[in-house]
């Protein structure tokens, strides 16, 4: 069994009118089955309102299933006795960095999590050192978090989660409010944690460039998982992605357009290098 596994997961909430009377039931997550293996880098894509954030909030028991089950590190999240273990297994990073930082100094903020886990002081400092190093923020340890850029703040938030030593980090649109530089910083950091530390990463996003190096991609629409596979497999279905209000990188789009116009290109080209190689091969064959 994987580190996070959901079986027929359903989440419903009741819509109410102004007087608080129930108006109807909304199903935000609908019969989702997922199985994420330890050490994987998994991306969950979907447009606004597709249910991806609701699904993410089940991964550390911020929401509990209406029907079905989700296990985090073998523990059923719906049992209250498991809550502590579930949250220690899966740490969460949210969209807005300003809502996640509480310390007045960077290193204090990072130490907040392990302190709450009653980790001995000596060990807390070790973890703070290591976490700040892992996200490349050691130089800022004595700085005030509110003077940092958005990307730096998100890296501090990630360090704060790292210091609790979770086996898995769930990032819910961590780059949506950042500029292109901040976005790159955060994604580079997350990828590095996955590679160097072997932490399982679940990245929720609607930026396609961020999922190219994922091991596995899930696409959500209307609360369901509608596509699943490697990035190459998923991006090869360009037309279908557009139907789910998503986009592909320009290189994939260009390859797809050229293929439609009759050029013999492979499906799901994700990198400029692959594209250039194929175009040059076609050019040589055409003998011009």
């Amino acid at each position: 069994m994987g580190i996070i596994k959901a079986s027929k997961l359903i989440y419903e909430y009741i819509k109410r009118d102004e007087e608080g009377n129930p108006e109807g039931v909304n199903r935000a997550v609908d019969q989702v089955d997922i199985d994420i293996q330890p050490g994987q880098f998994v991306a969950i894509l979907g447009h606004n309102g597709s249910g991806k954030s609701t699904l993410a909030k089940h991964m550390n028991a911020l929401l509990l299933p209406t029907e079905g089950t989700i296990w985090v590190g073998d523990k059923d999240t719906s049992l209250e006795d498991n809550l502590w273990d579930v949250r220690r297994t899966a740490g969460m990073v949210f969209q807005n960095p300003d809502n996640q930082i509480i310390g007045t100094v960077v290193e204090e903020d990072v130490g907040f999590g392990p302190e709450n886990l009653a980790v001995p002081t000596q060990e807390i400092w070790k973890r703070v050192d290591r976490s700040l190093e892992a996200v490349g923020m050691t130089a800022y340890r004595y700085h005030s978090p509110n003077k940092l850029s958005g990307g730096q703040k998100q890296r501090v938030a990630i360090a704060g989660i790292m210091a609790m030593k979770p086996r898995c980090i769930v990032l819910d649109e961590p780059t949506a409010m950042l500029d292109p530089n901040g976005r790159k910083e955060v994604i580079r950091t997350v990828r590095e944690l996955n590679r160097a530390e072997g932490i399982t990463v679940i990245l929720i996003t609607h930026y396609m460039e961020e999922v190219i190096e994922a091991d596995r991609v899930y696409v959500m629409d209307g609360g369901r998982v509608v596509m699943e596979g490697t990035p190459k497999e998923v991006f090869a279905r360009t037309e279908e992605l557009k139907g789910y209000r998503l986009d592909v990188p320009q290189v994939t789009e260009l390859a797809w357009e050229l293929k439609k116009a009759g050029l013999p290109l492979t499906d799901g080209i994700l990198t400029i290098d692959d594209f250039v190689d194929e175009i040059l091969a076609i050019h040589q064959k055409s003998g011009k």
């Binding site: 320009q250 789009e253 260009l254 357009e257 050229l258 116009a261 009759g262 050029l263 400029i272 290098d273 594209f275 250039v276 175009i279 040059l280 076609i282 050019h283 055409s286 011009k288």
Partner: peptide
């Protein structure tokens, strides 16, 4: 990247549509 490898394409291309047209001009297609 195409230009660096000697593919004959103009450098002033900023949209996917322009790139598509320019590449097809060189290698044909239906």
């Amino acid at each position: 990247a195409l230009r660096a490898k000697g593919f004959p394409i103009g450098e002033d291309i900023t949209t996917v549509e322009e790139a598509k047209a320019a590449i097809l001009q060189v290698v044909g297609g239906k």
